[in-house]
Design a protein around this nucleic acid. Sequence first.
DNA 1: TTTTTTAGTGTGTTCGAACACATTTTTTAC
DNA 2: GTAAAAAATGTGTTCGAACACACTAAAAAA
Lengths: 367, 367
Amino acid sequence: MNCMFSSTTFYLYSIIHYICHMKTKYTIKDIANLAGVSKGTVDRVLHKRGKVSQDALEKVNKILEEIDYQPNLMARSLKNNKIFSICILLPDPNSDPYWLPCIEGIQNAKAEFMPFNISLETFFFNPESTKSFLEINSIIIKKSPDAVLLVPLFFKETLNVIEKYNASKILVTTFNNQIQSKSIKSFVGQDLIQSGRVAAKLLDTILKKGDIAIVHINEVFKNAIHMQEKEKGFRNYFEEINGSKYKIFTCKLKHPSFKKDLIDFLENHPSISGIFITTSKAYQVAEVIEQIDNSKITIVGYDLLDKNIKYMKKGIIDFLINQNQKRQAYLGTIGLIEHFIFNKDISNKLLLPIDIVNTENAKYYTA
Amino acid sequence: MNCMFSSTTFYLYSIIHYICHMKTKYTIKDIANLAGVSKGTVDRVLHKRGKVSQDALEKVNKILEEIDYQPNLMARSLKNNKIFSICILLPDPNSDPYWLPCIEGIQNAKAEFMPFNISLETFFFNPESTKSFLEINSIIIKKSPDAVLLVPLFFKETLNVIEKYNASKILVTTFNNQIQSKSIKSFVGQDLIQSGRVAAKLLDTILKKGDIAIVHINEVFKNAIHMQEKEKGFRNYFEEINGSKYKIFTCKLKHPSFKKDLIDFLENHPSISGIFITTSKAYQVAEVIEQIDNSKITIVGYDLLDKNIKYMKKGIIDFLINQNQKRQAYLGTIGLIEHFIFNKDISNKLLLPIDIVNTENAKYYTA
DNA sequence: TTTTTTAGTGTGTTCGAACACATTTTTTAC
DNA sequence: GTAAAAAATGTGTTCGAACACACTAAAAAA
């Protein structure tokens, strides 16, 4: 067995703080020798395969209690030599470029675990069609992968397919949006209420006077819960600080009358000095603001789309909040891979940082 | 050999976009069979161990060109069964709590690669003593680890020890601050000039009028280059935008006269509406500002120390910039581990995001 | 008592890479 | 032409876990 020692050394001029992160490594053979049985018996005890006498069981368990046995996962993986297959399902980036960074995140995860036998397959569904979501899920089920990572855009349909996956004993984890159901074992994403609070704090810091508009730009089937939660957190922030000096208006816009409606809204509310856009389409608002040349309005929006960054550089959008899709997909994938290869637990809720982005630090989040 | 297929499927209602990230896996035995030689010969070719005829060499190389051979790292690691030892050297967190998160980052890295034979040893030096830095480095050299990750606080001494490490064929990488020398093979940290620009942009966004003070709080041996570069970036931002409306003052403070000097400075410059503190001691400035009850001054500082966050929650500090020490140490460690285990290249310069932190997203960066 | 069953135990093989070593082939020397 | 040296090639073992299989011993059935 390999053994490492931990020590603290004193030296002439300063105490050397020395932290050793190594542990003693035991093998099954070591345990067998210590317990006075054969490795086969130890193996049977470890895997609870039965056919072990009470006497031998006790001898092995005694040793197992004394030492901290950590199986060599390299050896296990080499022996099993199983190709773990993971299917990933997300909305088609052709329908919405928001999803494009996810592919990069998945590829990064794959690259990182290249030496392992991992099969990753990415599927896209039409974010405006529950039918497409269901269909592609049934295709994935037919492939019977070991696990599925998906974006559960549609509540009912998601619960539906998860039931089917469970029946086929396929592990399912989710990212992007959180479905409130005990059938969801794992979620990677952001706390949208907190996200709204971050936006609120930003506007609260910048604005000196005037009122605030929360702008929802509605798209077909872009789940409204997202926007609602962000608004909830946003308003919640101002309710908490007693005596908010701002009036907060909610403005729901929809294409094709979007532009006209926004201009009307701003004309009817000349006191507006700050706008919080709850979707990634802040550039659409910025476009209008630029045209009506209202440079005194502070804008906070979401996501590092090229168009958003363009208007941020122009000084029309002040802050963007990074929803970190790439990292969501990356961590969702990594979580499954490490679960299969290293037997790691899958965290049932992983909340990513809500990054505040301005012109000067944008490049670090887009790269 | 294991083989996976890539395909594109058309479906009734929508095209299924299908990306397969799997590659065919060959073994040495496969190559031997394909080339018509024995696995020993293939092994000799792969490791350039010689004793191979021209004929056999060509046969094997032909196959190697045709296929993409990726050695099974589990098998390699299992056979070699080498314990890679990495020593990490950073300033003592007892001298400056700034370094505390680094330990967590190192432990995370260790935990992530627990199944591998990695020995991590962390050493601390006194950040105010070049002697301590040199001494502990010589202790590390005596342990002859496979690699060293260190914080090169002192320029001359760092070049000195790197030479010794090179002589002992010990790989050295650095984090926290960048030493400008070709002998540095790898650096993980932040672009300090860009960091100053982020702060500048923040104040530019918030301030409506008044002037700005750059405050350097000098500590013994806290390398001045850090502060200089941040100031450079900060001023550079305002120089670039033609016609900055702010006057920018630089204010160097030093204990023990710190408090008095700061109060004097503010009294002499009543126009100051924004302060940029280039070190992690923003709380010390905030303390004074709170006492003189000047709530109209916007403060931007560095690092998520408890005291800084406390004053941010009080509304005295507006933004903190996260220098991300934890992640720096984490990525520096990961880089070395992956280099040894997966033969990955070590990136010679890894610039981390410059995170903008307010009260609402702070918890995601401290956790 | 002998045979069959079954519980209990240990041995041997596999995964893929690495390398020691044995074997075969070729070259050089005499 | 034969012996010795050198070059080339193949075989076998190891790493640690997993599991098939063979084996022993005791219990049950004949």
